[in-house]
Design a protein around this nucleic acid. Sequence first.
DNA 1: GCAATAAGGGATTTTTTTATCCCTATGCAA
DNA 2: TTGCATAGGGATAAAAAAATCCCTTATTGC
Lengths: 115, 115
Amino acid sequence: MNERKIPINLNCGLDLVAAVLYAKWKIRLLWFIHQGFLRPSELQRKIPEASRRVLNIQLKELEGHELVTKKIYPVVPPKVEYTLTEFGKSIIPIISVLGKWGDDNEDRLRSVITK
Amino acid sequence: MNERKIPINLNCGLDLVAAVLYAKWKIRLLWFIHQGFLRPSELQRKIPEASRRVLNIQLKELEGHELVTKKIYPVVPPKVEYTLTEFGKSIIPIISVLGKWGDDNEDRLRSVITK
DNA sequence: GCAATAAGGGATTTTTTTATCCCTATGCAA
DNA sequence: TTGCATAGGGATAAAAAAATCCCTTATTGC
């Protein structure tokens, strides 16, 4: 059905990283899961600008890419928790450094972005 | 004219980073400039999948965000060179680590992406 | 004279991504 | 009994991003 017309590049390491992380909310999702916000509803509250729908979709992709695991508790009302896999955990330090770079350069970034 | 309908998020460091780096080719552009491919035509040859047009646009944005500087040599045929600013250089180590993560996990990434 | 190279931008279309809206189900609280 | 919380997905619309096509300028090489 929805086949992509333009193939994804998988030439180098950076391409591979992009293939799993290049989406509007994925990095934040990983980050918040790492911080202990495991349930979809919690994640949604942490990222209110995102629609519930996309978060579900991107979580499912993260799961498919084995960065997170989904645990469904058979209770009512439903309870679901995502946790980082070891693989997923291995990228957290990099996300952390990225965020730190952003924080450290906040003023400058804010000024060049808004100008 | 082209005003964006959905505002960019600038809440945390990761949002700020996304505001300057979240585009299909920017990270590779920075990386290749760092490697010494300074001229637009060289960059285009390094990233043949990208259209010339988008590379120009993204280079201009990188310049506006003060990550690179553009030098125009008044010669014919025209010669232009982009170089990293100190600010731009400061993010290179992170890109390097990202790429390394991709390289180190190449097999696994390739398999989960293609499955 | 003609093609290639260099750089780049306007106009437009296509592709992709994200948002919006509406639907399911169950149990608890006011 | 109405409303909310939980989780999620289908269908579709809208937005954003990227691709495609065409145009300009001047020089070198054939």
